[in-house]
Design a binder for these strands. Sequence first.
DNA 1: TTTGTAATTGGGAATGATTCGCATTTGCAC
DNA 2: GTGCAAATGCGAATCATTCCCAATTACAAA
Lengths: 145, 145
Amino acid sequence: MGAKKNYNDILKNRNLKVTKHRYAILESLEKSKLPVSAESLYIELKKKGISISLSTVYRSLEALYKKGIVIKSILPDYNKAVFEYNHNEHRHHMICIKCHKMQPVTGCPLEEYEKLIESKFNFTVKGHNLEVYGYCDGCESKTED
Amino acid sequence: MGAKKNYNDILKNRNLKVTKHRYAILESLEKSKLPVSAESLYIELKKKGISISLSTVYRSLEALYKKGIVIKSILPDYNKAVFEYNHNEHRHHMICIKCHKMQPVTGCPLEEYEKLIESKFNFTVKGHNLEVYGYCDGCESKTED
DNA sequence: TTTGTAATTGGGAATGATTCGCATTTGCAC
DNA sequence: GTGCAAATGCGAATCATTCCCAATTACAAA
Ligand SMILES: [Zn+2]
Ligand SMILES: [Zn+2]
Ligand SMILES: [Zn+2]
Ligand SMILES: [Zn+2]
């Protein structure tokens, strides 16, 4: 939360111009506990009285994603991308099969695994994608077909 | 490869009717080393002389996915779903950021992690999704912007 | 502060993957 | 063999995302 100035630097350091839109997007994402879709972010910004177009939201998110400032993921049952601020405290999510709720889990069990892959195959690891599926607290008792 | 009869049982056990299309899809997926998109599978089946519609390919894959017979995943940079046969030898993939090649890696580093999650949160784990990103053997020397 | 230029944006159209609707066909239990 | 629910074909519809292009803006250099 050394916020304000921070976003400017983050953007500048990655050769992205500082605009009020990007600023607002980062602010919104950083506050959000959970990953959000482009559209829901768009709606949220509108509610805050920010004038922005959906295209811009998509473009900004994509730019931020390419620079590693945000994390993008697409879930096989919820066919759209969701974005979250890349708090560098690496984290993953538990996703409920039933209600689609996502819950963050900090920490990562993959450090050794990545090293293993790098040495075993000739592959330079740059990151990974991990989500755990199952039934959340509330949906526990439900069984599927 | 106790193949032939096998698919029939797999389908029947999950309350899916046995049709030549599903049979062909499973056969194709099981042989494939790498995950394939619905469309490329469709094209492949056509080449084999099988008469099928793209809708059916989508519907069948979705049905097989819901039953756990195939695995579905969507990659954030290649915006479409890919499917692979669920060899129960659990595996994951390394995906090249540059050429999009996917390479399977058998084995899983997440058993303990899942137990941890189940006990720590009140969450019933049913599965997970893991891909490792980076540069493959051939694309090694390439840097991004 | 002013100017020049490339990056960013709006808004709407285009795209492309996936799903849907509905008439027809097929699997399979009885 | 019959009957019915499930599966299919094919085209239309949907929906997220990208693209186009003219107008605006950020910001570096003067
Ligand atoms: Zn739930
Ligand atoms: Zn991790
Ligand atoms: Zn590669
Ligand atoms: Zn695994």
